[in-house]
Computed example of a mutant assay.
Amino acid sequence: MATALSVNLNKIALIRNSREGNYPDVLEHAKVCLARGANGITVHPRPDQRHIRPEDVRQLAALLAPLAEREFNIEGNPFAPPRGNYPGLLSLAEETRPDQCTLVPDSDNQLTSDHGFDLTRSAEQLAPMIARLQSQGIRVSLFMDPLPEQIRLAKAVGADRIELYTGPYAAAWGGDQLEQIFQQHYRAAELAGELGLGVNAGHDLNLVNLAKYATVPGLLEVSIGHALTVDAIAMGLGNAVQAYKKVLADAAN
């Protein structure tokens, strides 16, 4: 079975937020992605609301709730406190009931997520948060680096899945370190499977580097936003979604 494609709509929201009004419309772009074969939609609301806003999350949840074969994934920092009309990640997830909540250790001063959890420091705080989300029927994934000891801790803390941070893999593309980094991810995915953890991946995957990464064992889902949005400028959003779907389908054969 091909790896699922979840389209991250943060960059659509970022463009919208550069002007007054609701153009481009995040909800309408989600509909295009789903109509052209996306398996799900990902959003990453942040307290500073630089892109996705709480109301976007609510509208997307209503769109996806009746679609049994499509998934809604909300990402974010569970430790970030409420701010303004941002209620906090766990409260927003409990209100909107996504299929999956991906916990990410980011902060306002990061342009984007750039590292996984260090569970030697945060496991004790995360454990009740994971249990709280799971009690609402929400699958929990932790954003992780491909480190065996950390992946074992992800299992111990109660996560359902991990999302492997693929930024270093993408940055190494075409360089001498690529194969070493890829093998790290390959072995990390194997270990996760042995432990009973599902494996997702995301960050800077694109039409060039995705095919190789999609051969990682047991890869259930990739979340792609930035590159897919850039490709959509040239080829159109629906065509971009189909291009990524084709790469994943070809890798599964």
Rank of each mutant, 00 (worst) to 15 (best):
L5E: 03
L5K: 01
L9P: 09
L9C: 14
I12T: 13
I12H: 07
L14C: 10
I15P: 07
R16V: 09
Y23S: 14
D25A: 13
V32F: 08
P45D: 04
Q49P: 05
R50P: 02
R50Q: 07
R53P: 01
A61Q: 04
L63M: 13
P82W: 14
G84M: 13
P87Y: 04
S91V: 10
V104G: 00
P105H: 04
S107N: 02
T112I: 07
T112G: 05
S113N: 05
D114N: 11
L126K: 00
L126G: 04
A131E: 15
R132G: 10
R139M: 09
V140Q: 01
S141K: 02
L142M: 08
P146F: 00
L147C: 05
P148A: 15
Q150C: 10
G158E: 00
A159R: 01
D160P: 05
R161E: 05
I162V: 03
T166P: 01
G167Q: 06
A172C: 14
G174C: 12
H185C: 09
G193W: 01
G196S: 06
A201R: 00
H203C: 00
L210W: 07
L219F: 03
L220W: 10
T229V: 14
A240F: 06
A240D: 09
Q242I: 11
Y244I: 00
K246D: 13
D250T: 14
D250P: 12
A252E: 15
